[in-house]
Structures are given as structure tokens and as C-alpha cells.
Design a protein around this nucleic acid. Structure first.
Lengths: 214, 214
DNA sequence: GTTTTTACCATATGTTCATATGGTAAAAAC
DNA sequence: GTTTTTACCATATGAACATATGGTAAAAAC
């Protein structure tokens, strides 16, 4: 072996370049050569870490989604430590999917660009469906916990509530994403409206107050 | 001039071939040659009616969207003739955007495929934003009319309600669209859940009954 | 110190595709 | 009946790109 190299770190460097390119120019302007240039690598270097372009794209997509999910999870853990109302955690978690600032906008654009490819790429379609299921199951769990805690009425259907909140958020993300023409703050008013709507619907599902234990 | 030819009809034939290809194989498997073959034309023929591929794609996209909007409009007119409750019309109109049968699924796939291109195509992004605005304004009008008619409480914000219903529907469409792996009925159960959810939220916005005039 | 393995690179290759080009034919115009 | 215009076609052309190829160098293994 020559120089000891952190394989995963290199792949991430490449993936970051892909994300930047997708965000700024769209998925079909991503070429291996451009990615290499953006990352400051040679084409051969990129090839060394990703034998095929497809692998490179898939890795990037998975990483972007993973980063969002990790954030949401971290939010959940922080919340249980600090005994926050579930309702607030749900609002914050859903907010991670809205393109309301540069970071989230970049992630959203990547997700959106890949979403358009689910039509012809079954692997991508599966991955997207899987992510959706995961989100809804997290939401359903939150609703379930909310019931035990007293925030949610007993007759609420967790799965249906989860589907509603998830769909509403994704739909809003689409709307915000397109309106964001300028690279400056893209309609702060619209962002507020979207966040307000999500908050309102979450409050409708979680109308109660948590009974404090201990 | 030689043979008198209906220019628009030819373009539509080509656009239909594009729609078929996008639906079945995805946007980036659409080439001029494949489109020509699908439509039963020569490449030169397609070129004659669409000087550039971009024009061909844009025309197809606009046509698919237009067809949905026309259906929704027709729905609205039929409803005013027959004095149907606004609520029911809204549910049906929103239903046009859900991929619950082959026709709507095809349209949805086209919309979705092009949606992924809004990132790098400002024209497409504008068009998509425009369509969204149109849908929401139709919904807001429906809510407004519902107030005058007595179906909607006076303190409802029409724009906010419109945004909610529109976003919810688009979000549900995304979820359904991905789940539909098989070419058979794609999760009739999921379709039902989606339609049920839309119906429920529309009923929440239009809880009242229309006072009959005359 | 030789061998082997891995990192990394420049350039070659072959394919796919949009579009250009140089046509034929037929109908309208006059 | 000649001219012009439009419909339509087969094939040429050149660009973009993913991937293959044939390298060099450096470090570990022994």
C-alpha cells in the first residue's frame, strides 16, 4: 500500500462537489470531469473512488438524505433529554425538509433533482419510497407518544396524521423551491407562510399539553 | 405550399410520443430519434416541426399541464351548471393531480420528470411556479365563493387554505407516484388513503352547506 | 532491496446524440 | 408550365461524455 488514505473521506469530498454542482447547475450538468474539476481532482482520481458515475450519484444522494435524517434524529434525542413538547420537535423536524435557508435549499434541490429520475431508475424510486416510509413512521411514533403523553386526542389515527403532515410538508417544499429564483433570501414571506402552515397543522394534531411525569 | 397540413396536429402527435416515452422510460431516455420512431416519423420530420429538442420538450410539458387544467376548468363549469356543492368540485379538481389511474399517472410522471429539471432551467421553473399560482388562485376563489354561499366560515383565510390544500395534494401525489412500482393498480389502498385525506381536509375547510338561491 | 499494492494521472476510445446538410417531391402561385 | 414554397427524408458532422488504457510513483511487505 502507498499513502494511507481515508477512502470514505475522499468519497465525501467528491460527493460534496456533486452536491454543489447539482445545487447550482442541475443534475444533467454534472459530469465526471466537471465534478473532478470542482473538487480539485483529476478525472482519474474520481474514477479511482467511484468506478462508475452512477455509483457517484447514488452515494451523493444517499449522503444528502442521510444528513437531513441525522439532523432530525439529533433533534429527537435533544428533545427527549430536555423534555420538550413533542409538538415542537415535530415542527422542527419537518422544517428540516423545507428550503428556507441556503443549507436546506441545497439539500432540497438535490432531492428534487433525483426525484425527477425516479421515473426511470427503480433503485432511486425504491430509495425515495423507503425514505418516505421512514419519515412517516417517525411521525406516527411521535403521534403515538403524543397520545400517551396527553398532547394528542385518543381517537387520532397516527398513520393518517403522519401521512398528512408529511405530504403537506413535501408539497410546501416544492412550492417554496420553485419560487426561489433569486440566490438571496427566497421570499422570506413565503417561507414564513409555509412554516406557519406546518405549525398550524401540527398544533391541530397535537392540541393538548404534555402531562409532566416525575 | 405543398400538401396542406395541420401544423398543430403534427406537433401534438410528436408531443404524445414524448409523453409516452417520458412516462415509460424517463426524460433522459427521450431522444429526437426515439421520439420520431415512437411517433412513426423520420427524424427530419420531427425536426421540421420542432427545430430544437428543447422546444419539443417544452411544448410537451405545457400540453400535459394544459390538459389537466382544462379538465379542472371543465369540472368547474359543469359544477356551476348543476349547482353542485363547491366542496365536491374542489375535491374532484384536486383529484386530477393525484396519480390514481393510468391517465393521471402518466401526466404525473411527466410533471415530475420536468420538475427535476427546474433546478437548471429557469423557464421551466417559471412555468411551474406560474402553474402553482394559478391552481392556488382557483382554490382561493373557490374558498371565497364558499364563504358567500355559506359552505365556508367567514374567518377563513382563502389564500392560506388554498396553499394548504394545494401543498397537501402535491405532497400526496409525490408519495403515490413513487409507490407505484407495478404497472397494475398501484396500491389502490394508498390511493384511497390519499383521496380520503384530501376529502377530509377539503371538508374541514368547507364544513357548511350551501344556502340555495332561487 | 526487491516485490507488490495502491494512489493517482493524462490521454485514448467508442458511443450517443443534437443538429446540419443536401437532397426529392408535390402542390400552389402566377 | 415554370417558379416557389413547403413537407419530408437519409445521412453527415461534430461535440460531449463515460469509461478504458497504460502509464508513474510511493509506500508497505518480506
Amino acid at each position: 500500500m502507498p499513502k494511507v488514505v481515508d477512502h470514505r473521506a475522499r468519497r465525501i469530498q467528491v460527493a460534496d462537489a456533486v452536491q454543489k454542482l447539482v445545487t447550482e447547475e442541475g443534475l444533467d450538468r454534472v459530469t465526471v470531469a466537471r465534478t473532478a474539476a470542482t473538487a480539485g481532482f483529476s478525472v482519474g482520481h474520481v474514477q479511482h473512488y467511484f468506478p462508475t458515475k452512477d455509483e457517484m450519484l447514488l452515494f451523493t444522494h444517499e449522503r444528502v438524505v442521510r444528513k437531513i435524517l441525522d439532523r432530525v434524529s439529533a433533534l429527537g434525542e435533544r428533545a427527549t433529554r430536555q423534555q420538550l413538547p413533542i409538538r415542537d420537535v415535530v415542527v422542527e423536524g419537518l422544517g428540516e425538509w423545507l428550503p428556507v435557508d441556503a443549507r436546506r435549499r441545497s439539500a432540497h434541490r438535490v432531492v428534487l433533482a433525483f426525484l425527477g429520475r425516479t421515473v426511470d431508475n427503480p433503485g432511486l424510486a425504491r430509495s425515495h419510497a423507503e425514505t418516505g416510509r421512514l419519515i412517516r413512521s417517525m411521525l406516527a411514533t411521535a403521534v403515538h407518544n403524543g397520545k400517551e403523553c396527553g398532547e394528542v386526542p385518543a381517537d387520532t389515527d397516527p398513520d393518517l396524521a403522519a401521512l398528512e403532515l408529511h405530504s403537506l410538508t413535501e408539497g410546501l417544499a416544492l412550492q417554496l423551491g420553485s419560487g426561489a429564483d433569486t440566490d438571496t433570501d427566497p421570499g422570506a414571506a413565503e417561507s414564513q407562510a409555509a412554516l406557519g402552515l406546518v405549525t398550524a397543522r401540527v398544533r391541530a394534531v397535537f392540541p393538548g399539553r404534555c402531562r409532566q411525569y416525575g
